[in-house]
Design a protein around this nucleic acid. Structure first.
Lengths: 304, 304
DNA sequence: CGCCTCATGAAAGTAAGTTTCATCCGTGGC
DNA sequence: GCCACGGATGAAACTTACTTTCATGAGGCG
């Protein structure tokens, strides 16, 4: 299979910290220790010398340098400066207790709400910051010109996939979503050049989705991956990689923020596609809105 | 003037750059050359090495160090970091063009992304702000103690409903979602005291959802409405009303931000319920996570 | 079991930052 | 005119930080 050059976001304009946490699972254990220190307190890390940081991470200077390279820096001094800049830009979070992403056992509901909202909003913002408009553009082009679009996703990502399918459908693009792997595989087998397959997986390791995307690619379709981890397996079967920037890992915040981030990306694609043919998209949307009108009761803000 | 080892205890409150330009006249000629370079482009200076900067200022490294001391720094690395931080802070924050909520016809993708993310994040934050923890508490209580939970929603809200159902199911609560009105009505008819019915409708006017909620209420179940409009029809059949705060109205931003706001609310409820029985919820989540483990590739980290 | 790949830190090597010190230059006193 | 004197300055010695190289060992695969 001819592997076309993969397009992914190699830039990390918005947040270095976010970028690093996205790469975290693809790092070696020792590098992860360094990464965690850096992410936990960027300003502090910027103050440390390389030897100091190495000691704190219980590893050698060499590993710290490797870590720098892994996240795309030239060397330690560059990382230091970027971290300092990042830390300065970072606005003080509203409330320390809210930041951890984790919710303390004794938390009351007000606290829970604040924490979740903070993390959700952050995920959305940071995702947008690190999204590469150029890659999006290519994906939008592909979707806008596609004969058919298949959207794949399992579990929580399945909802997002399904949502995107519905959106595309509403503006008159031929799009499908399959809750079932077998059906999805069958569909992928029928894709061809000019079609698009979009696979969504937060971890990037969902084998079902990867498998289907692989199939689609083998058939000549353009493949797009949407994941939180830019070096996860799913990116290897994708022509275009779009990443979210949800930092949460704990079970409670679980897939929550990542879902919102995924939806944000999907919305951007959707609006991009709709903008390609504004008039037609608008007409289609109005038609579909009208279709459900009879299922609305008066008294709302819509016409009777 | 001149140089005594330490003049003032070097507190340069507002800006390092400002501080430096204030000291400029008291510096020696060679130091002034350095200072001017630094003030002219702090970010650039931060990137340079000491030798580099010395050369650019047509002086020696020693003088650069002297300059560092003169402005109250320990040495060159510290200056560099402070400069990087300073430069980062200087960057103009938001961007007026993004705030409007509407996307202009000629917008490029970068603009689209910024706009959507801004509105999405805002919707999440504002929703959290106006959510009434007391009402949430009651709803959480009801759900936590319910024999059965039905979640209703149509169209885009259907995804949210479905998502919530899945979440509740994962922590061992008996929850249902029905994509079809008839089935939903049937289910509602079987609810009773101690059960909970949650209806989601952005506009609050979706007759299908209202009808089902009404049915559930008639059977004695506690009814909860999640809508953006606190006086919409759906609120009339609900014991508890939770509202989102998505301001968007145009077709483009359409149901997008509202969906995220709904998800945020749903996540809050979910975490609230999970927190009611932390141990059991955790166990259930771990068990379900384990169940899908075999559908993930590369259990640990991925490619280098 | 042998081969390979990869992660890792010790140590060697290089570059950056810091200190020391001799020189230079202007100033003011004799 | 000559000579201290003191500050400014850069060359070079020196120290520390950063980077590379390489040997080792663990884990995976045939």
């Amino acid at each position: 299979m001819a592997k076309s050059p993969k397009i992914s976001a190699s830039h990390e304009p918005g947040g270095l910290i976010v970028h690093i946490s996205g790469l975290l699972p693809s790092l070696s254990p020792a590098e992860q220790r360094v990464a965690r220190l850096v992410v936990a307190d960027p300003a502090d890390a910027a103050r440390r010398t390389i030897t100091d940081l190495a000691t704190a991470a219980e590893t050698s200077e060499a590993t710290v340098i490797r870590f720098c390279r892994s996240v795309g820096m030239d060397g330690y001094p560059q990382l230091r400066i970027r971290l300092a800049a990042e830390a300065a830009r970072r606005i003080e979070p509203p409330d320390a207790r809210v930041v951890g992403g984790d919710i303390p056992p004794g938390a009351d509901l007000a606290q829970i709400i604040a924490t979740i909202a903070f993390n959700d909003a952050r995920a959305v913002e940071e995702t947008a910051e690190q999204l590469d408009p150029a890659v999006c553009e290519r994906v939008v082009d592909a979707i806008a010109g596609a004969g058919r679009i298949d959207v794949y996703g399992a579990g929580a990502s399945g909802f997002v996939a399904s949502d995107f399918q519905q959106k595309l459908h509403r503006i008159g693009r031929t799009a499908f979503y399959f809750p079932d792997v077998h059906t999805a595989l069958t569909s992928a087998a029928l894709l061809g050049r000019g079609d698009v397959a979009l696979g969504i997986s937060h971890t990037g390791t969902t084998s079902d989705v990867i498998e289907v995307l692989e199939q689609a690619r083998a058939r000549g379709a353009a493949t797009v991956a949407l994941t939180n981890f830019p070096r996860s397996p799913i990116t290897e079967v994708a022509d275009y990689v779009l990443t979210t920037a949800a930092r949460e890992t704990t079970y409670r915040s679980g897939a929550m923020a990542s879902r919102l981030a995924q939806l944000t990306v999907v919305d951007c694609l959707f609006v991009g596609v709709a903008a390609r043919n504004r008039a037609r998209a608008k007409k289609a949307l109005e038609a579909t809105a009208e279709a459900v009108q009879s299922h609305r009761v008066g008294g709302g803000r819509r016409r009777a």
